[in-house]
């Protein structure tokens, strides 16, 4: 599946002001490779696996992850995109996010779903994603892979595969892409 034509949300209103780089592009690639091996180790059969990237930060990681999984096992891993805007519980609290494309081809019943996101924070996005996934059937299991776990969970949600644990303060912001991971603050650029 190609996502060339699928939309990705443009950056939010506030610009990200980077203070320090925590991981390089190479570090990110190595972490992804390790996570891919962990996924294979834990799940043996990959024919019934779907990698789903969370819009928008998780899409790049999910795409790379499915490539790595395909390389390791010489099978093709199916890839999907999920936008959880319509499943969020904060529509009354936060400004409604701009919506992006969801693209999930498979009936997820009895499949293993690897949810991939860039940063795990409060856990609310993952909560919304779990609700959303149930509309595509009943997966045999859902596992969560994140590049960065920054703590501050508000819900009983934990990742299965973590690229890097980064304890943060609440007012700090993490940006994670395939090009690296930075810590910074949000502000007007």
């Amino acid at each position: 599946m190609s996502f060339k034509n699928e939309r990705q949300t443009p950056p939010r209103d506030l610009a990200f002001l980077a203070k320090s780089q925590l991981l390089s592009a190479d570090d990110v690639e190595r972490a992804l490779r390790r996570m891919a091996h962990e996924i294979v180790e834990r799940n043996h059969a990959l024919e019934d696996m779907t990698v789903i990237g969370m819009q928008t930060g998780g899409v790049g990681f999910a795409t790379r992850m499915s490539e790595l999984l395909s390389d390791i096992t010489s099978t093709t891993t199916s890839l999907g995109l999920l936008d959880v805007s319509f499943y969020r519980d904060d529509l009354n609290v936060n400004p409604t996010p701009r919506t992006s494309m969801t693209a999930i081809d498979d009936d997820l019943t009895d499949r293993t779903v690897i949810l991939v996101d860039d940063v795990l924070f409060t856990g609310r996005t993952i909560r919304a994603a779990l609700n959303a996934l149930s509309d595509w059937g009943r997966p045999r299991s859902v596992q969560l892979a994140v590049m960065v776990d920054r703590g501050h969970r508000e819900l009983p949600i934990r990742p299965d595969y973590v690229g890097k644990n980064l304890p943060t303060a609440l007012d700090e912001t993490i940006r994670a892409t395939l090009d690296g991971v930075w810590m910074g603050t949000k502000g007007v650029s």
Binding site: Y87, L91, T99, T102, D107
Partner: peptide, 20 residues
């Protein structure tokens, strides 16, 4: 128009409902 585009996808699902 762009928001409607996201809902086109919802209307193609077998479960055509979101809790928004």
């Amino acid at each position: 128009l762009d928001t409607a585009e996201s809902f086109v996808e919802v209307n193609r699902r077998s479960i055509k409902k979101v809790p928004a």
